[in-house]
């Protein structure tokens, strides 16, 4: 959380994260380029750069896509999620090196401009196997460029979290485009079955992790809540919620997180204002609901971030009758204080 925009709000964990990225990138490039020089001394420097950066970027994309479902399956991997955007921007920069070198190598200094050459050199758009694979990589890079350029919190706030998140879901389109780029491109030349096996393992891992995460996150059908005459809905017993934790409910289309703390109960919208993170999976720390994704905080009784921060989420009226919690699923405006419900 920050009051003013900075290029990067550095802290110890971000620094460690970035050192780890730099270390792995350096290690990969060192091994890849070193082995190329030893095993294939005839190769040209341009080809080494193109292949080293392409394989590295593709590997990084797999890691990026694995982090999300891994954290759903085991929240202890959340530190990997915390600074993932730096991993994404690094991946974009490495992809850009691959793209620029490929464009210069294959399309520059010809009888037409580079971009015209990119789209017209292979005109057989009708056949699957002959499809101009380089154009797929070009569009993947464009999407990555938009994502990298809007990765800062400035854009997150100004585009709104919903639009920003939708835009950044483009990473799945990128993955599909790059899989086809690899399949129709270099795998038509490098025909070792190992490459096909590695690609298949990558796709299966990504798809499998997402399916597993979806399965784990799927909530069994909740019993139909009882609706009272005053618009309140009976949601659960107070003992169903651990102290300082929440239970999430989907009522009348409202995604509600109901927190229990210090003998009280409060309800707020489940989506963090920052990146739509699941507040209901967060915890009350120092009296504030703390988002598990990036640590954004809100006061449970009014949905407002503690001063001087200004983020606000919708709140819901709550009451306790005995140990039963009742919630009015009609949202109040973000930051609206609610009467405290004691149990």
């Amino acid at each position: 959380m920050a009051l003013h925009y900075q290029a990067v709000s550095w802290n110890r964990q971000k620094t460690l994260y970035d050192w780890a990225i730099a270390g792995f990138v350096g290690l990969y490039l060192l091994i890849f380029c070193g082995l190329q020089a030893i095993l294939f001394p005839d190769v040209t420097a341009e080809t080494v750069i193109i292949r080293a950066t392409s394989t590295l970027a593709f590997l990084m994309l797999h890691v990026i896509l694995m982090i999300g479902p891994l954290c759903r399956l085991n929240p202890r991997f959340l530190p990997l999620l915390y600074n993932r955007r730096h991993l994404g921007v690094s991946m974009f920069l490495i992809s850009a090196v691959h793209s620029v070198f490929s464009l210069l190598q294959f399309h520059s200094r010809g009888n037409v401009g580079m971009l015209k050459s990119l789209f017209t050199s292979e005109p057989d758009y009708r056949h699957f196997s002959q499809f101009p694979f380089q154009t797929l990589g070009f569009f993947a890079l464009l999407i990555l460029l938009v994502m990298a350029a809007t990765s800062h919190d400035f854009w997150l706030k100004n585009l709104t979290p919903r639009l920003w998140k939708t835009l950044h879901m483009g990473v799945y389109v990128v993955y599909g485009l790059i899989v086809m780029h690899v399949l129709l491109g270099v795998l038509q030349q490098e025909t070792s079955s190992l490459y096909v096996i590695l690609l298949a393992c990558g796709v299966v891992t990504i798809v499998g992790l997402h399916l597993a995460a979806a399965f784990v996150s799927h909530q069994p059908n909740q019993p139909a809540p009882k609706t009272g005459t005053d618009g309140f809905v009976s949601v659960c017993d107070v003992n169903d919620i651990h102290e300082n934790r929440a239970k999430t409910m989907l009522i009348n289309g409202q995604n509600i997180a109901i927190f229990r703390y210090d003998g009280k109960v409060s309800a707020v919208n489940n989506q963090c204002r920052h990146q739509n993170g699941p507040l209901g999976e967060g915890k009350i720390i120092d009296g504030c609901i703390t988002c598990p994704w990036h640590g954004y905080q809100y006061q449970p009784q009014n949905g407002q971030s503690p001063p001087p921060f200004t983020e606000k989420v919708e709140t819901y009226a709550v009451k306790c009758i005995g140990t039963t919690i009742w919630v009015n699923p009609t949202p109040s405006l973000p930051g609206t204080p609610q009467t405290t419900a004691f149990f």
Binding site: I31, F32, L35, F40, R51, Q189, E190, Y195, L198
Partner: peptide
């Protein structure tokens, strides 16, 4: 990472 880098280089057709 080192295993992948090694395999990707090693199995190339050559130049």
């Amino acid at each position: 990472v080192p295993i992948l880098a090694g395999l990707l280089v090693w199995k190339q057709r050559g130049f």
